[in-house]
Design a protein around this nucleic acid. Sequence first.
DNA 1: CTATCATCTAACTAACTGGTTAATTAACCA
DNA 2: TGGTTAATTAACCAGTTAGTTAGATGATAG
Lengths: 231, 231
Amino acid sequence: MPPLAHQPARSNRLGTRGQPEESRAAILRAAAEEFAEHGVAGARTDAIARQAKVNKALLYYYFNDKETLYDAVLDNAFSGLKNVVFRVLDSDLPSREKLLAYVGTYFDFIASNHVYPRLMQREMMRAREGRSAHIDRLIKNYIQPIFVRVGELLHRGIEEGEFRKVDPAHFVPSMVAMIVFYFSSAPVLQRIVGFNPLTPERIAERRAAVLDLISAGLFRQDTRAARGARS
Amino acid sequence: MPPLAHQPARSNRLGTRGQPEESRAAILRAAAEEFAEHGVAGARTDAIARQAKVNKALLYYYFNDKETLYDAVLDNAFSGLKNVVFRVLDSDLPSREKLLAYVGTYFDFIASNHVYPRLMQREMMRAREGRSAHIDRLIKNYIQPIFVRVGELLHRGIEEGEFRKVDPAHFVPSMVAMIVFYFSSAPVLQRIVGFNPLTPERIAERRAAVLDLISAGLFRQDTRAARGARS
DNA sequence: CTATCATCTAACTAACTGGTTAATTAACCA
DNA sequence: TGGTTAATTAACCAGTTAGTTAGATGATAG
């Protein structure tokens, strides 16, 4: 995909030779939304085509079938997450700061596009059904690497006496849960608490709450370094 | 649905061929599994009928349509949760103990049948799409009452100085997240950590980890009562 | 012993949905 | 200029699926 910034070529209408990259991107965007909203089974290819303003056959021209299109959507999402998160994990912050930065970055990524949490949550549950190679690929390429690195970070913090002795195999999923669950269950939450959980203010509130709970639940308070948890 | 606890299959009054209550129950059981596995859209009525060993038309005899059947399944699940959880919330334990008992009970219920977490997680995400009255009913009847009571419990604990000053609107979802997410994402988790997260030992481990994190994140440590978190 | 009613089924249909095909349009190139 | 190819579409098809129907079955009341 060459970075052609072509604004000219007023393809006033849908010609035949329009802008391939844009069509492709439009399909991906529409598909992400549709998959996030209805799941793979519930997603309608016609609906994706309509929303992308493209003929349905074009989906099958760029992607072979529904499943492949879904794959592409997931790759998009998870690779984005991995990128931002690894930038933090590769830095050389001290344990506490790095852990908080990791959580904050994870949170911000999920919050940046409400399609992500819904997509992830759905994918988490899908692993049992279609145990096609595609889920394993996702895990191997994106999820597991992150998990391993955060696990190491936790171990280091524990050794340093900065963190309480927690089991990473449980603590990591707990962190993910607090972040992803909030967004994926936002519609229900809205009806329970009465307000919209997805306004910027509420999201900021949530961010603080998550960081606070993790700090309180993970950091030792009797250690030399007595700095409060701040991000 | 009258609370008839009849094990004596001798359906004395039910005069017909076969056993109606058992068929009905079989359908509900099969449907719960199918819905949990594939979601409403992905669930196949034929598959439900086959698994319940009844004719498909019988689904429509007892329940009017797929959606109604789904409703019944959800009612079953959520009312069960509400029952066990309220038994704890209605007790007169001190704040800390009650909170831990609540979490433990919630956890045990979810862990008792792996259909529950998957069902709940799915339902959480469904609220936006079909905003039919049935989701509102679920929330009003089961989810919100629990939420309100736990919120009150948190407020009380905070006032008493037993709990840190947390926002119930965020803390309650966090607790749910840690419990439900673990089970609903078990298939993925299994491939990440390498072991089966649903063995009794691992579940017990998870239970302890959740209680520990919540204790450490919620309880004040400088208060008079210095008992360790035990359930 | 028969009419009744709840229970249950085989067979069917109408609508939908993923995926295909053949044709069309424009850019590029030789 | 004309052929090759990438991009795009309208129309279509075959398989699937939720839901229906017309009737069977048998326990029970009368």
